[in-house]
Write a protein that binds this DNA or RNA. Structure first.
Length: 871
DNA sequence: GTAGGGTTAG
């Protein structure tokens, strides 16, 4: 006795008598037993014991062992079958034994045993072909090794239709539809006749890769070969046509099918539901009941999905009780998952919770559906709690659960929870999934942390269009339009922007008043067929409104065939911004006449429009409509509009009273609106009172200190101005620097107050000086109060000349062709002196100037401004 | 006999 190999598992030869027969190989092979003992079990005692094993002649062993292996396999005892196969090595086990054991390996998905069986067969010299080939391929594909299975399949001298079908369905199951189709074509070329199994598998493949035309040809072949009366084949055809959106073809096949089974009915319901025709799906279901067809799990799952899509809670409830009475489906986890999802989508979270709590078995899908239900109801905290509970119960979150909870954190702005989820994602390597990393980016963006968002985004190996859109939209919504535009330019080099990209980037153009860029993107949307998308059209109108092209915006708005609430709101807000209050009201009334009722946002737009046009009575009327006709409780923003309206129109005392009578606690914005009014109507006393309240509420907001300082300056109370300046300095507050910009030939030129470093600075200075002296000649005097410096008039005048909006306007005069409208945007409110100068410029140079400040638009033409003082 | 058609979430 001796060891032949030292590697695990150790194989050694043992002669029946314990003698070494190595001298005669053939003899030894026939008369020996092959032992395969794992090295860990190899010990002196087992070696010592081995020679004492009972021995028989090889013929007896072979018959006995084959029969015994089959018997072991029949009772499912793979362990003993394997032990016997391995321990009694001989070349002549019968095929039945090999087949049985390969079959069992396949059922148990034990590729290790399967491979061992294969090596034993091969070392015994038996050819792998015929039935053995079939079994071996079957074993490999069932154990998940499609590649090895294919290699064996390719070597077989001839293959029965069964194996072709097996390979086709396995490739299809692993998502490799192309290879399934290749095999199908190959078998047709070889003259192998497909059967009903082939057709039902292959139709799914043609549907999955949307090769509808080829699928139709297969339909032709089915008819030619006479398989068009097989219900399995027709059922597959029905599904195929539904996937290809050929609803009528599917219905026709169903109508002509005499031998309908439950799957035929279910296919019809599911097909209609997947084509968005939920009503038709439910109709089929009702017919099914009328015909007395027994429903099953798939029926109810489809029907609940239809109810969820329609949002018909009542029908959902009826069907819930029906299905419990008709069958015992409510123990099925899939049934309950769909059911609770239906309840939550129909807005009945409590019923969903009841279903959830009664479930014996809860899978990650059940938990995810509940989490999504909570998110849907805006209960993000509850969603986060559920997620933690799920984890503590040992349910492992998958990609869906993680994206759903990230969505909850995003909606809630809960950065802390979001970061904990991110840690979990990192630990479990889920970041490689693009859904997860897109959801992570979105969560960070919605929580306002664009740095973290960019971190996730930049580490993504594969960025899809959603990744780009999320990031660009994130920058836009976080008021970082320049970053959005830079990323958009980068995206154009690496990926193709879609309609969503356009809808995400246009607000950035709007906020920068980057008209040329906006036009370019609008053109891109038109060329690529995105201009039908309602998000795009609304964003286009909004962009033109905010870039000052109100007339164009209106004509594009008129061309929108199905205006939704957002379209109307954009237009109303547009009129408001440009000071066309009565047009805003007309549009508002038109909207209501078409049956669209305003929401909170559109009320803000219309109230804002009234206040910027001084329409006091109309504003009040709308404020009352909001409460009485639309049952919308006004929020802080609505109150702020009303205070603004009262204060602007000079009703300062009324405004003050209105604030005191508010049912909700006023914030700094409300008092700020009153403070603005105090400035317009020069009420220093009230201003001081109001400012005191504001400084308590928002001590860090520099804007209000500046506003009060302006009020003092206009009243020439220089001491007070000085005090306030000191206060600002002590608190370490810095005045937000005024900055204006103008786009020329697509390039945005930014000017900061007093900035002399710009190109053409000398020319600009000269132009402004000339204009100033001309203004003086015609009787204008500079509004030096706006200079806010306790200096002499001459110095103030110099300071005024450095205002950013003047620099930008002058730059426009110098660089735009004569007659072309000058469009300037400013980050703060326009200064009174600049406002005067713009009026003058528009007249003396006969040029329209459109100035957008942080509050509204000013159209200057022939020496007057559209704001008529309301700003 | 082994293979096929309908089944929940973002």
């Amino acid at each position: 006795m001796m060891l032949l190999a030292a590697k695990a598992p150790i194989t050694f030869w043992l002669s029946p008598a314990g003698n070494d027969h190595r001298g005669s190989v053939n003899l030894k092979f026939r008369q020996s037993f092959l032992f395969v003992i794992p090295s860990s079990k190899l010990s002196f005692s087992s070696l010592a014991y081995a020679p004492a094993l009972e021995t028989k002649s090889y013929m007896d062993v072979e018959l006995d062992s084959s029969r015994k292996i089959v018997e072991f396999c029949e009772v499912g005892d793979l362990k003993n079958a394997m032990e016997l196969l391995c321990s009694s090595q001989n070349s002549n086990f019968d095929l039945g034994a090999y087949c049985s054991i390969l079959q069992l390996c396949a059922e148990r998905k034990s590729i290790r045993d399967g491979r061992r069986v294969r090596s034993i067969i091969e070392s015994s010299g038996v050819m792998i072909d015929g039935i053995l080939g079939v079994k071996l391929v079957f074993m490999y594909v069932k154990c998940g090794d499609l590649k090895e299975g294919r290699m064996v399949f390719d070597k077989l001298s001839e293959s029965k239709i069964f194996l072709w079908n097996l390979m086709i369905s396995e490739y299809s199951g692993s998502g490799n539809y192309g290879e399934s189709i290749n095999l199908f074509k190959q078998m047709l070329e070889l003259g192998i006749k497909p059967n009903s199994y082939t057709f039902s598998s292959i139709l799914k493949c043609f549907a999955a890769v949307a090769r509808v035309e080829e699928g139709r040809q297969v339909h032709g072949l089915i008819c030619k070969l006479g398989f068009n009366s097989y219900n399995t084949v027709v059922n597959s055809l029905i599904s195929f046509y539904f996937v290809g959106r050929k609803v009528r073809c599917a219905q026709k096949l169903f109508d002509e099918l005499t031998d309908r089974d439950v799957i035929s009915w279910n296919s019809m319901i599911s097909g209609y539901v997947k084509n968005g025709l939920d009503d038709r799906g439910i109709e089929i279901f009702i017919k099914m009941l009328v015909f007395g067809v027994d429903i099953d799990l798939a029926t109810m799952v489809n029907v609940f999905v239809a109810c969820a899509n329609i949002g018909t809670l009542l029908l959902g409830k009826v069907l819930h009780s029906y299905s419990i009475k008709a069958a015992t489906l409510d123990r099925e986890v899939r049934f309950n998952n769909t059911l609770l999802d239906m309840y939550s989508k129909c807005g009945d979270l409590n019923s969903a919770i009841r279903v959830f709590e009664r479930m014996d078995e809860k899978t990650v899908v059940s938990w995810t559906s509940m989490i999504t239900g909570y998110v849907r109801e805006g209960l993000s905290d509850g969603a986060i709690k559920l997620f933690d509970e799920m984890k503590s119960r040992g349910v492992v979150p998958d990609v869906y659960a993680v994206t759903s909870i990230l969505n909850a954190c995003a909606i809630n702005g809960n950065l802390k929870s979001g970061k904990i989820v991110h840690d979990y994602i990192r630990e479990n390597n889920l970041e490689t999934n693009s859904f997860v990393s897109n959801a992570l980016t979105d969560m960070y963006a919605k929580c306002g942390s664009m740095k973290d968002a960019h971190d996730v985004f930049s580490h993504m190996k594969k960025k899809d269009v959603i990744s780009w859109n999320t990031m660009i939209g994130g920058y836009t919504k976080n008021s970082l339009p320049n970053e959005a535009l830079t990323l958009f330019a980068e995206m154009q080099r690496e990926s193709k922007p879609d309609g969503t990209t356009v809808a995400c980037i246009l607000p950035a153009c709007a906020s920068l008043a980057a008209l040329d860029k906006g036009r370019e993107i609008h053109g891109y949307a038109l060329r690529n067929g995105y201009s039908e998308d309602k998000y795009v059209t609304n964003a286009v109108v909004d962009m033109y409104v905010k870039c000052g092209l109100l007339v164009l915006a209106r004509s594009l708005f008129d061309m929108i065939p199905n205006k939704d609430l957002v379209s109307w709101t954009v237009m109303i807000a547009g009129y408001g911004m440009h000071g066309y209050g009565s047009e805003a009201i007309n549009t508002f009334n038109q909207m209501r006449m078409t049956g669209i009722e305003p929401d909170e946002v559109s009320f803000i737009s219309i109230l804002y429009a009234c206040s910027h046009s001084g329409l006091l009575d109309e504003g009040w009327k709308i404020f009352n409509i909001m409460k009485k006709e639309c049952q919308i409780e006004p929020n802080l923003e609505h109150y702020a509009c009303m205070v603004d309206l009262l204060a602007r129109t000079g009703n300062l005392v009324k405004a003050h009273k209105f604030i005191k009578a508010m049912p909700i606690k006023p914030d700094a914005t409300i008092w700020g609106a009153l403070l603005c009014g105090c400035r317009i109507h020069h009420d220093v006393k009230l201003a001081e009172k109001v400012a005191e309240r504001i400084f308590e509420l928002e001590p860090e907001n520099t804007g209000y200190y500046v506003l009060l300082a302006n009020i003092y300056a206009e009243a020439e109370k220089w001491e007070e101005v000085q005090k306030l300046r000191k206060k600002i300095g002590q608190r370490g507050l810095k005045k937000n620097p005024g900055c204006s910009w103008i786009e020329i030939k697509g390039k945005i030129n930014i000017f900061v107050a007093g900035d002399c470093s710009k190109p053409q600075a000398k020319k600009i200075e000269l132009l402004l000086k000339r204009l100033r002296s001309k203004m003086k000649e015609e009787g204008y005097s500079p509004k030096t109060a706006y200079a806010l410096l306790n200096a002499d008039e001459r110095e103030k005048e110099v300071a005024l000349c450095g205002h950013s909006e003047k620099l930008a306007m002058a730059f426009g005069m110098l660089n735009l062709p004569p007659g072309k409208t000058i469009r300037v945007t400013k980050n703060l409110r326009v200064c009174g002196d600049c406002h005067e100068m713009a009026k003058f410029m528009s007249k003396s140079a006969s040029r329209e100037i459109i100035l957008r400040d942080s509050s509204r638009f000013h159209h200057f033409k022939d020496g007057s401004c559209s704001c008529r003082g309301y700003w």
